[in-house]
Amino acid sequence: MLTVASRSETAAVGFIWRVARAVAARLGRVDEAHAARCRLAALPGEVLRDSGIAPCDAVGEATWQPELPFFMQDGFGERGR
C-alpha cells in the first residue's frame, strides 16, 4: 500500500541523503589524496638523489596532502631526514 510520508519523514530522508553525499565526497577526496601520496612514495630514493629533482617536482604532486591526517603524510615517522 502506498502512503503519503509526513513532512518530518520527508525532511529526515532529505537530510540523510545530504549527509551521505557529503560523506561520499569527503571519502573521494581522501582517496585522491592517498593516491597522490602513493605516487610520491613509489619514486625510488636513488633516482631522486641522482637526478637532484624534488619528489613533488618529479611527479607533479604536493608533498603535503591536506585531506590526509598527519600520520599519513610523506615522511612521517622517519628519523634523520
Rank of each mutant, 00 (worst) to 15 (best):
I53P: 10
E61P: 01
A54F: 11
G75W: 02
G60W: 06
A42L: 07
F70N: 00
V13P: 06
A58Q: 10
F70R: 05
A12Y: 03
F76W: 06
E78K: 12
I53A: 13
S51M: 11
D50M: 15
L68A: 04
M1D: 12
R39A: 03
A5N: 13
P66A: 07
T10G: 07
V19I: 12
L27P: 01
A35K: 14
M72C: 12
F76L: 00
D74M: 02
D31N: 08
A42D: 08
G28M: 02
H34F: 00
R7Y: 09
V13F: 08
R26F: 01
G14P: 12
S8Q: 11
L40S: 05
R37H: 04
R26G: 02
R26T: 03
S6L: 12
A62S: 15
V59G: 02
R18Y: 14
E46T: 14
G80I: 00
L2H: 12
G80K: 07
R7P: 01
R39G: 06
A5V: 07
D57F: 10
F71L: 08
T10Q: 09
F15S: 14
V47I: 13
E78I: 03
R21H: 05
R29Y: 03
F15K: 13
P66H: 04
A22L: 13
R29V: 02
E78C: 07
L2E: 12
V19Q: 15
G14D: 13
F15D: 15
G77T: 02
W17Y: 15
D57P: 04
V47H: 06
V47W: 12
S8G: 00
I53T: 13
D31R: 09
C56Q: 14
G28H: 06
A36R: 01
A33G: 10
S8Y: 09
Q65H: 05
A11G: 04
E46Q: 13
E78L: 06
G60C: 14
L43M: 09
G60V: 07
L48W: 05
E67K: 04
D74G: 06
P69E: 07
G45T: 05
A41V: 00
H34W: 05
S51Y: 11
A24I: 00
Q73E: 11
S51F: 09
L48E: 03
E78D: 12
W17R: 15
G60L: 06
E61S: 08
G75M: 03
G75I: 01
D74I: 03
R81T: 00
C38Q: 11
A62H: 15
A36F: 01
M1H: 11
G77E: 01
R18V: 10
W64N: 09
T63L: 13
R49S: 13
D74N: 11
A42F: 03
